[in-house]
Amino acid sequence: MPNIGFTAITATNPIWLIKTRLQLDARNRGERQMNAFECVRRVYRADGCRGFYRGMSASYAGISETVIHFVIYESIKRKLLEAKAPPMDDDEDSSKDASDFVGMMLAAATSKTCATTLAYPHEVIRTRLREEGTKYLSFFQTLTTVPKEEGYRALYRGLTPHLVRQIPNTAIMMCTYEFVVYLLNG
Rank of each mutant, 00 (worst) to 15 (best):
E38R: 07
Y177W: 13
T127G: 07
N169I: 09
A36T: 07
F139C: 00
A115W: 05
P86S: 07
D90Q: 12
R157K: 14
Y152D: 04
L17H: 15
Q23S: 14
E38C: 05
D91N: 15
Y152A: 13
C175S: 15
D91A: 11
H69L: 06
K77R: 14
Y152S: 11
C49Y: 14
E150I: 00
L159F: 01
T7Y: 12
P168W: 06
R29C: 13
V164H: 04
F140M: 13
M88G: 11
A154E: 09
F179K: 10
L143P: 00
T66M: 14
K148Y: 11
A98R: 07
L17P: 08
E82Y: 05
H122Q: 13
D89F: 09
A61H: 07
G186K: 09
N3W: 14
K96D: 09
V124S: 00
T20P: 00
L159R: 03
P161L: 01
A115D: 01
T134G: 07
I9C: 04
G158D: 01
D97S: 11
G62P: 04
E150G: 00
T170R: 10
T116D: 04
Q166W: 11
E132M: 06
F139E: 02
K19Q: 15
R130V: 07
T110L: 07
A108F: 05
S64I: 07
A154L: 01
N35F: 04
A26I: 12
Y120N: 01
E92F: 14
A171P: 06
T127R: 14
R29M: 12
T176H: 02
D91H: 09
N185D: 09
N13A: 09
D100L: 00
E65S: 03
V181W: 06
C114R: 06
M88N: 13
E82I: 03
G151A: 02
D89R: 12
P121D: 02
I125F: 05
E65I: 07
D100F: 13
S111K: 00
R41P: 03
M56H: 07
V67N: 07
K79T: 10
G133E: 04
K84P: 02
Y53Q: 09
A98I: 13
M174S: 04
M173G: 12
G158I: 05
R157H: 14
I18W: 04
M174K: 12
V181D: 09
K148I: 01
M1C: 07
E150L: 02
Q166T: 12
T117L: 00
G186E: 09
P2Y: 13
N28A: 15
V180N: 02
I72L: 13
Y44P: 06
A26W: 15
K77L: 12
L137C: 09
H162K: 09
D91F: 05
L183H: 09
L143T: 00
G133F: 01
F179H: 09
R27F: 11
T12Y: 06
S99D: 11
R45K: 13
C49V: 15
R130I: 08
T176P: 01
P168C: 03
M105E: 08
L17V: 15
I76D: 05
F52S: 04
F139N: 00
R54Q: 11
Y44T: 06
F37K: 15
V40P: 05
I9E: 06
F139D: 00
I76H: 03
L22Q: 02
F101W: 06
M173W: 12
F179D: 01
A58C: 04
A107V: 06
L183A: 10
L22W: 04
